[in-house]
Amino acid sequence: MSKGTVYGLGLGPGDPDLMSVRADRILRRAAHVAYFRKEGRCGQARRIVEGLIPETAAEYPMEYPVTTEIPFEDPRYNATLSAFYADCTARLTALAEAGEDVVVLCEGDPFFYGSFMHLYTRLMGVVPVEVVPGITGMSAAWTASGAPITWGDDVLTVLPGTLPEETLAEGIGAADAVVVMKMGRHLEKLRRALAAAGKAEAAWIVEYAAMPGQQVTRLADYSEPTAPYFSILLVHGQGRRP
């Protein structure tokens, strides 16, 4: 019996209209659909495809054992997530080895800060794996801002907000254009880093890009101490123009 394929399906930033034709085609013929979520939640990836999954498809929620309950630097964090990804991989492998194709839903692009990459590295060489790229959340964010993120020879830097403050300040200061992901609980630290880099006045926050509730706000006018999980900070480049 030939093995089935595990598809890492990039769904884009939130609006189902931003899915690729290929992703839509694979999803509509899926017999097995897996997706990540927090316990008790629907999950953003599953929410994007509401009404698009075949009624006959079997669904496999993969619930994170931890998110922010344990600090990243605590050895228990990696150990717990490693065991979780190993268990998810075993479930997907069993289906694929039985000849079944499996679709794993991924918001944004599967290879850009996505959980699927942890499955991909474990599945490669064991069963066939195919990744379908998707529009990233940052692309939706700068589109929502109404301004190009880069011009001419601008250098774009993408930073996770979880980095130390000094590292953030150095990265922001060295770049022409900046995108900061994973910034919600780190907003105050990020404000200080932007100020140190001299770019606080140029920064914008985009909440829920390409989703219901999308908001674009200049950082200077943003009064909240934290931002929602689906938030991205932008500093637009101002480079060479004709």
Results as ranks from 00 to 15, higher is better:
M1K: 09
S2C: 06
K3V: 06
V6R: 12
G8V: 13
L9H: 08
L9N: 07
G12C: 04
P13N: 05
P16R: 03
D17P: 00
S20W: 02
A23F: 05
L27T: 02
A31F: 02
H32I: 01
F36M: 03
R37D: 03
R37M: 03
R37N: 03
G43M: 05
Q44N: 09
A45I: 04
V49T: 01
G51Q: 04
G51P: 05
I53F: 03
P54S: 01
A58I: 00
A58N: 00
E59W: 01
M62H: 05
T68C: 08
P71F: 06
T80A: 04
L81V: 02
F84A: 03
A86C: 00
D87S: 01
L95S: 00
A96C: 02
A96M: 02
A98S: 05
A98G: 09
D101S: 01
L105P: 03
C106E: 04
P110R: 08
Y113T: 13
Y113S: 14
Y113G: 12
S115R: 10
F116V: 07
M117Y: 15
Y120T: 12
G125F: 13
G125I: 07
G134Y: 07
G137H: 11
A141S: 12
T143I: 06
P148I: 08
P148G: 11
T150Y: 08
G152P: 04
D154Q: 07
D154R: 06
V155H: 11
G161P: 07
G161V: 06
L163G: 13
E166C: 04
T167V: 09
L168D: 11
E170F: 04
G171F: 08
I172S: 11
A175C: 09
A177I: 13
V180F: 15
M183D: 14
G184K: 12
R185H: 15
K189W: 14
A193I: 08
A193K: 08
L194H: 10
A196N: 10
G198K: 09
K199N: 09
A200F: 14
W204L: 11
I205W: 12
D221R: 08
T226I: 12
P228C: 10
P228F: 13
I232A: 06
L234E: 12
H236M: 10
G237C: 10
R240L: 14
R241Y: 06
